[in-house]
Every structure is written in structure tokens, then in C-alpha cells.
Amino acid sequence: MPTDTPCFEARNLTRAFGHGARRKVAVNDATFTIAEREIVSLVGQSGCGKSVLAKLLLRLEKPSSGDLLYHGRPIAESGDPRAYWRDVQAVFQDPYAAFNQFFTIRSQLKACFRLFDRRPPEGEMEERIDQALLAVNLRPRELDGKYPFELSGGQMQRLLLARIFILRPRVLIADEPTSMVDACSRAGILEYLMKLKEELSMTIVFVTHDIGLAYYVSDRLFILHEGRIVEQGTPDDVTQRPTSPFTRQLLDDIPSVHRPWVSRVGAK
């Protein structure tokens, strides 16, 4: 359950690129709070600024103006970025890009421990890797000596989540983690995400263009359009009583099995 302690707070957060006539505002005057142990989804079409906002939270971009606080302190000033990334981790769209193709999977999982100040003893590392793999339903022994290209996209995406199990961050930023996965494996990925949240009591920021998916996992939704947060609220409020036309648009665009979607004039 979400707590009352704020994890992230943004006030008039803005990120712009370029100058003059070429200036593009990717995130425009965003003000919000994300509580500890909350799952918040950033939803919008491509180019709405959701990924830039995610990068700001990840400290991969710097705000042009406004404040962005993590546990009450401005992100840019919270010292060593490595310490920050020990707290705040991410999974991205393309799991293959997140792993080096030339090293075994196991050795790369082991490398995760480097992010810690003190590395646990060998035996404990192996133990924790096995546990993490089992947690996402991968059999540790079957992965021994394997390289990333030998695994399917769904398996790779689960491997990314296994990495999170090892790192045990306080916050996870998940940027479209299911968009490159077969539709039938998506449910699995989301299930493990939920499990992660329960076991590690994490805060999760979920970035997606699919409001249906967001509805399924989130405590709250932020709807973004052209850099602005046009609506925030609980999944039920946002989807059943949308106040913004952009939210309504996103809802209408989902190909639901149960209601009409696109029409054919000359349908036979």
C-alpha cells in the first residue's frame, strides 16, 4: 500500500531542448508528488514527454527549471550518482540492449553486486542470483553458460526484473517494459513486477502508451499530453470519469474486444 511519505516531489518541473525557434518543451511545468510504495503510471502518446520525465526521475536528464526532489532533497544535489542509482533503478523497452552480448548472463548478474559498497561473499552472491532467477520463474541451472542472444525476448525481460531482485532498489522506473514482448507474455511480466513491488516494497513509476495496461497495474495515473500532465487520479476515476479530452482519446483508441473501435464504410 502507498504510504504518506513522499518519494518524489516535483514543482513546476520543466525540461526544454534547443533554443529560440527550435526550442521544444518536453516536460512543461509539471507539479506532482509520488508517495513511497506507490505505483504511478505515466501515460500518453509517443512524444508526450513521458520518457523525458522518466529520465528526469532517473537523473539522466537535468531540469531546465523547477524543482525535483527525492526524499526532500533536489535530485541533482543528492551527491554521488551511483548512490542515487542504488536507490533508483530502471528497466527499459529493449532488454537485449541492457545486456552485453559477449558475456554470459550469470557473469552479468554477478556484476550487479559491484554497485554495492561492500560485495557479499561468493556463496551469498550465487545464492542471491539463484533466488532472483527463481523469483521470475527462470531456472538458474538452465541459464548457466548462456549468452543473451540465446534467450527469447520474454525471458530477457524477466532477466531484467531478476536484476532488480538482486539490486533491491527502493524505486523502479519501468519504461515501456512490455512493448517489445509478445502480447501473451505481457501478463507474466506485469505479474512479476507486482511481485517485486510486494516483496521489496518498492515505489514504481510505470511508463506506457497503453492506458489499459496502466489501469491494470497502477495506484494512480498521470496522463501526459505535449509535455503537460493533463490529468492525474486513481485508475477508476481517470478511466470512468475522464476530465481531459486527451484521456478520453487514449481510452477510445484501445482495441477492446467488447466495443466497436474502427468502422468500415463498405463492410461486408
Binding site: 502480447a183 501473451c184 505481457r186 507474466g188 497503453d210 492506458i211 495496461l213 491494470y216 481510452l251 484501445i254
Partner: peptide, 24 residues
Amino acid sequence: ALMGSMLSAEPGQKSRKPVAIEGA
């Protein structure tokens, strides 16, 4: 199984839990 694994991406369907197809 394929149909059951689809996230019914629509509000009001939260109760129906999609089930991923295990294995490869």
C-alpha cells in the same frame, strides 16, 4: 490459452486476471 493471456486492456476488467502461457 492465448486469449486468456491477453491483458484485456480496458477499464472494468481488472477482476479477470490474465494468465501467461508458461514455457516456450
